[in-house]
């Protein structure tokens, strides 16, 4: 799904997500800031996605079906954000929310397969990309819209590619 050398993918993996420990782990207290101590059961803590992903899937032992941690719904998919996405996709500040929003949604949903969320996000992408396209078409004019600053990393790339393609075309027409 993702390229091993993709920097954006690596950065997205480093995003922290909230988790809850299901068991007490000795010596892991430094995650919380008290080194040498164990990390208690039911501690809530933020872990990078790449670590949480594995710990949430691995089971502690064959007898119990329990995993090391449970993942708690992170901020970027809470009902407030989802409602904002549903009501007006173009006014959501994705960059502030999460610079690698789509990547993380992808990762999240490939773990939990949340169809409702994917539908919403796909709709948002369609609406926002339409907007991006119209912005990319008049880069010469002053872009004094907040919208450009709310793009996430993928959208920024898209914007750049689109405006470059338009620029080449305009230059050719002028020749």
């Amino acid at each position: 799904m993702s390229n091993y050398y993709d920097l954006d993918d690596i950065l997205a993996d480093g995003e922290k997500v909230p988790c809850k420990f299901n068991i007490t782990v000795p010596g892991l207290g430094y995650l919380q800031g008290n080194p040498g101590k164990p990390i208690e059961k039911d501690t809530k803590i933020e872990l990078p996605f790449w670590l949480a992903e594995i710990l949430a899937v691995c089971i502690v032992s064959d007898e119990s079906q329990q995993s090391f941690i449970d993942m708690i719904d992170p901020e970027f998919i809470n009902s407030k954000v989802v409602n904002a996405i549903k009501s007006n996709p173009t006014s959501v500040d994705l960059h502030k929310l999460l610079p690698h929003y789509y990547k993380l949604i992808e990762k999240w949903c490939s773990m939990f397969s949340d169809e409702q969320l994917i539908d919403n996000v796909m709709n948002m992408l369609k609406e926002r990309s339409f907007e991006i396209n119209s912005f990319a078409n008049n880069v010469n004019k002053q872009v004094n819209s907040e919208f450009i600053y709310t793009l996430d990393e993928f959208e920024k790339k898209l914007f750049k590619q689109t405006s470059e393609s338009n620029k080449l075309m305009r230059n050719w027409l002028k020749e």
């Binding site: 789509y102 992808e106 490939s110 397969s113 990319a136 790339k157 689109t162 393609s165």
Partner: peptide
């Protein structure tokens, strides 16, 4: 092309997760 491919690829990978 650059625009359409970018968006469609993203949509596809989002869609595939479900």
């Amino acid at each position: 092309r650059p625009f359409v491919l970018g968006v469609m690829n993203k949509l596809r990978s989002l869609h595939e997760t479900t």
